[in-house]
């Protein structure tokens, strides 16, 4: 029996080549634009809050936004969308931290050798 999967159908790379009659010199996915715009808005809000709305802070900020966008977008794949990425980060941050940080290890000498007890 043939074993089909519909995965291929959902692996469409939606790219934005530019506005009509103007082709951008680079190809980027719509998700990259979404991340970039979100980060830019966040940057502008931050600069406004800390009162640094000047040319150079904005220029450096934009460089940082482009760098961050390039770092984030590879994690957005056909299998993992932007929302699931955010959800995963949120899940990881909320997870209880390692019990090993609270545990106490006692090494005890016994008649049969060395025994280690770990109290959690």
């Amino acid at each position: 029996m043939q074993m089909h999967s519909d995965d291929e159908l959902y692996a469409v790379d939606s790219v934005f080549l530019g506005p009509p009659r103007f082709t951008l010199p680079f190809k980027a996915r719509y998700q990259a634009y979404a991340v970039g715009i979100t980060l830019t808005i966040a940057l502008l809000i931050l600069l406004k809050i800390i009162n640094l709305m000047a040319f150079w802070p904005i220029a450096y900020g934009m460089v940082a936004v482009i760098w961050a966008t390039r770092k984030i977008t590879p994690h957005i794949t056909h299998d993992s969308s932007l929302t699931t990425l955010v959800r995963t980060v949120w899940n990881d941050v909320r997870a209880p931290r390692s019990a090993s940080q609270q545990q106490e290890t006692v090494t005890e000498m016994t008649s049969t050798g060395i025994r280690r007890h770990t109290y959690l």
């Binding site: 999967s5 519909d6 159908l9 959902y10 299998d79 993992s80 929302t83 995963t88 899940n91």
Partner: peptide, 9 residues
């Protein structure tokens, strides 16, 4: 936990 890695078939 998240909808990542959904397999459709």
């Amino acid at each position: 936990s998240s909808e990542a890695y959904a397999r459709r078939m």
